[in-house]
C-alpha cells in the first residue's frame, strides 16, 4: 500500500544549528522523488528529519492524511515510513535472517518475498551481518525496510560505495519494487543520472532550501543543464 507525503515549512537541524530552512514539497501516492545536491546541503538531514531522528524546529509532515511530525521515531516507522540509511546499519552479530526477522511488522512483506527479490540473501541467510559484503548489507537494509510495511520508502544513497555490477543489480531491484508495488519513494543520490532515471520528479537542495524542482524528464540526459543546475547548487 502506498501513501503520499506532504512536507510544509520544515525547519530542522542539530541543536541550534539549522540545516533545513523551510522546506516544502509534496509526494503523491506512488510518486518517486529524487533529492539532488552536493554534499552537506541537507539531503540526509531531510530523510532523518522525516523519520524523527533529527530535531524538527517547525513545519509539518503529513503521511497520507495523518500528521506525523510529533510522533516518535518508531511510530513513524509503524505508520509507514521505511528508511534505508546511508550507513546500512546492519546488526553485525545477527544473521541475515535474524536481521530480517527483527524488522518484520504486520502487513509488511514476508521473508520469502524478500528472498525472491534478493536471492543472494537467501544464500547468505545464516551469515552474520559482519560477514556480508557492502552490496549484501545494502540488500539487507532495503529488505528490512520492506518488511516493515512501508507506505513511503526513504532511500539514503543506497548505491554509495558499491561496485558497478552490484549497483546494477541493486538498482534493478529498486526498479522492481517501484514498478511492482507502486510504493512512494524518495531517493537521495549523488549519481544524478541514475536518480533521474529512477524518479518521476526531482528537487535540488542547496543550503537547506529547495532551489529547483521539476519532472525528471526535463533533466534526464541533459548533462549541460544538470551541470548548470547542480553547478548553481555548488556555487
Amino acid at each position: 500500500m502506498s501513501a503520499g507525503l506532504k512536507v510544509e515549512g520544515l525547519i530542522a537541524g542539530y541543536g541550534e544549528t539549522v540545516v533545513l530552512d523551510g522546506l516544502s514539497f509534496e509526494l503523491p501516492p506512488g510518486g518517486t522523488l529524487a533529492v539532488l545536491g552536493r554534499n552537506g546541503v541537507g539531503k540526509t538531514t531531510l530523510l532523518t528529519t522525516l523519520m524523527g531522528i533529527t530535531t524538527r524546529h517547525s513545519g509539518t509532515i503529513a503521511l497520507g492524511d495523518q500528521q506525523i511530525e510529533k510522533l516518535p521515531v518508531h511510530m513513524r516507522a509503524r505508520n509507514g515510513l521505511g528508511f534505508v540509511p546511508q550507513e546500512r546499519e546492519v546488526f553485525p552479530s545477527l544473521t541475515v535472517e535474524e536481521n530480517l526477522q527483527v524488522s518484520a511488522l504486520p502487513g509488511g512483506w514476508d521473508i520469502e518475498r524478500v528472498y525472491d527479490l534478493f536471492p543472494r540473501l537467501k544464500e547468505r541467510r545464516k551469515n552474520t551481518g559482519n560477514r556480508l559484503s557492502g552490496g549484501e548489507q545494502q540488500m539487507v537494509a532495503v529488505a528490512r525496510a520492506l518488511l516493515g510495511a512501508p507506505k513511503v520508502l526513504l532511500l539514503d544513497e543506497p548505491l554509495e560505495g558499491l561496485a558497478p555490477i552490484v549497483i546494477e543489480s541493486l538498482f534493478e531491484a529498486l526498479i522492481k519494487i517501484r514498478d511492482e508495488t507502486g510504493l512512494s519513494m524518495i531517493l537521495v543520490e549523488q549519481k544524478a543520472d541514475l536518480a533521474l532515471s529512477f524518479a518521476r520528479d526531482f528537487v535540488v537542495i542547496d543550503r537547506g532550501k529547495i532551489v529547483h524542482r521539476g519532472p525528471s524528464k526535463e533533466l534526464q540526459g541533459d548533462h549541460d543543464r544538470q551541470h548548470r543546475l547542480l553547478g548553481v547548487a555548488e556555487a
Binding site: 531522528i53 518508531h74 528508511f83 546499519e89 546488526f91 553485525p92 545477527l94 527483527v102 524488522s103
Partner: peptide, 24 residues
C-alpha cells in the same frame, strides 16, 4: 525469539531499531 533478537538489535544500535518500528 524475535523479542530476544530485537534486544540484541537494541544493544547494537537502538536508533536503527527505532527506525524499523521497534518500541525500544
Amino acid at each position: 525469539s524475535p523479542f530476544g533478537r530485537s534486544l540484541d538489535g537494541i544493544r547494537q544500535n537502538s536508533r536503527r531499531m527505532r527506525a524499523i518500528g521497534t518500541p525500544v
